[in-house]
């Protein structure tokens, strides 16, 4: 087990959506390499509460990399330096004594800051509401094995479905594009036979909503794929663009 570290944190502090924010410096002392990044922040916060100071507000929930709640830019990279790793799974053994660490919220116009590192990502919900589903009500569907799905299609659909909706792809994109998020859902459902009937309508409606929310366009830098904690491939964006072009070519789908 390696030694404890002392770190300097520069953290974005902002009281609420309407107040201006600024970077504030904190010291994180006696940090164990076995701590997770968020546990390191917990320890800093405990000390701040003791001193009667305002703790650093940040989002987290499952702390095992699956819920998509945690969302912070660490030294300029959403979720920090480790590939395929959410901030909650990042451990301090990847830092060294004396490091200065900058911690900021997701920066994107459609994700307003609510406090410190916490942002409002409800725009992503509204994109799913626009059509990110298969229209089937609870009832008596056909037997699950009535419709075989080729393993490679099911596997590829699962690759896309692995998206945790954290929004890191938006945060890293210079255009604040949500194309990786949207394309992951469009591909997941479009690849499966169950999702085929609504394929045109779905992509058209989801992309329209994405535009309405103020997310930018994709300019193929692949930064989204690089920071995606679930390694969702940017190739899904190409698939979505093709689906979208086809849906437009077939005529504007029924918007109802």
């Amino acid at each position: 087990m390696s030694k404890e570290m002392n770190l300097t944190l520069k953290v974005w502090k902002q009281k609420d959506q309407n107040s201006p924010g600024r970077m504030k410096t904190y010291q994180a002392k006696k940090v164990s390499p076995d701590m997770s990044f968020l546990e390191m922040l917990d320890v800093v916060n405990e000390e701040l509460i003791h001193q009667g100071q305002d703790p650093i507000a940040f989002d987290s929930d499952c702390r095992e990399g699956i819920c998509g709640t945690c969302s912070m830019v660490i030294n300029g990279t959403p979720h920090g330096p480790m590939k395929g790793t959410t901030a909650c799974e990042l451990h301090m053994r990847h830092f060294k004594d004396g490091d200065v660490i900058a911690i900021e919220p997701w920066r994107a116009k459609p994700f307003p800051v609510l406090r410190d590192l916490i942002t409002n990502r409800s725009a992503l919900d509204r994109i799913i509401q626009a059509g990110g589903y298969i229209s089937v009500s609870t009832g008596n569907p056909a037997d699950a094995n009535a419709l075989p799905v080729a393993k490679k299609d099911a596997d590829l659909a699962m690759d896309a479905a692995a998206c945790i909706g954290c929004g890191a792809c938006v945060a890293v994109c210079k255009n604040a594009s949500a194309m990786l998020f949207v394309s992951a859902k469009v591909s997941h459902l479009g690849l499966l036979p169950q999702g085929k009937p609504e394929r045109d309508r779905r992509v058209w409606k989801m992309v329209s909503q994405m535009d309405k929310e103020g997310f930018g366009n994709c300019t193929n830098t692949y930064a989204c794929e690089a920071v995606c904690p679930k390694k969702v491939s940017a190739l899904f964006i190409a698939r979505m663009n093709r689906d979208y072009a086809l849906s437009v070519a077939k005529g504007q789908p029924d918007a109802s």
Binding site: Y133, I134, V136, T138, G139, N140, P141, A142, D143, A144, N145, L147, P148, V149, A150, K151, A154, A157, M158, A161, H188, L189, L192, Q194, G195
Partner: peptide, 22 residues
Amino acid sequence: NAIIDQSVAQGVPFAREYGGLL
């Protein structure tokens, strides 16, 4: 059993064998 049927209809990508079945 109905839960599995319902989930598959919703597009839940359960693991499948090469024959395409669950």
